[in-house]
């Protein structure tokens, strides 16, 4: 299956990262303790970062660690610790009737779709960059500026829309979470 174009080192790196990703992902759903699950998630994220480095997407690898492992999972753990849900949960109870078969079907459809996509075209592998119109990515530090140029020119509207969405989400979260001590309570 492995084409001759790949060197032994590249295959070793890929296998390592794939094992990290899959073991971590299985750990997230299989482990009963939520904190251990979060740690498995970190392992998966590291595996993805390794895969990014192997694709010479160094910036994405760094951001993967900084944002996901360094901030988002920390917030997960923060919530787990604060709410004290670090106990074993009863997994046998099904809160919504028919939830599991539906979820299984959904996962099946998504996986099949992804496999079909990968079989029919190779854009999923990221071998060709959309922004460079088919030219290969620059290696080294060059592709950071390539990425930056793409984000701030070709995909500017998508980028700004995402930024606006995030700001709205933050404002919404504050509005929902903040308790007014002043006039509101008295008039209500």
């Amino acid at each position: 299956m492995i084409a001759t174009a790949y060197s032994l080192g590249a295959v070793a790196v890929f296998v390592t990262s794939a094992v990290l990703i899959i073991v971590g992902a299985l750990g997230v759903i299989a482990v009963k303790n939520p904190v251990h699950a979060a740690m498995s998630l970190i392992m998966t994220l590291f595996g993805v970062a390794v895969a990014f480095v192997a694709q010479s997407a160094d910036f994405l690898a760094a951001v993967q660690i900084i944002v996901y492992a360094g901030a988002i999972v920390v917030l997960f753990l923060f919530v787990i610790m604060f709410l004290g849900v670090d106990r074993r949960e009863g997994v046998r109870v099904e809160p919504l009737v028919g939830q599991r078969p539906l979820a299984a079907t959904g996962v099946g459809i998504v996986v099949l779709g992804l496999v079909a996509l990968m079989a029919r075209s190779h854009w999923v592998t990221g071998a060709m960059s959309v922004s460079t119109k088919g030219a290969p990515l620059a290696t080294g530090s060059g592709n950071v500026s390539q990425l930056g140029t793409a984000v701030f020119t070709t995909y500017l509207y998508a980028f700004e829309a995402t930024a606006a969405l995030l700001v709205i989400a933050v404002v919404g979260a504050i509005v929902l979470a903040r308790r007014e001590h002043s006039l509101d309570e008295e008039s209500a």
């Binding site: 010479s56 160094d58 910036f59 360094g70």
Partner: peptide, 13 residues
């Protein structure tokens, strides 16, 4: 190539 970002990643870890 990621240079100084490595330091930010590690301080996150």
């Amino acid at each position: 190539p990621m240079g100084i970002l490595l330091m930010l990643a590690m301080s996150g870890i």
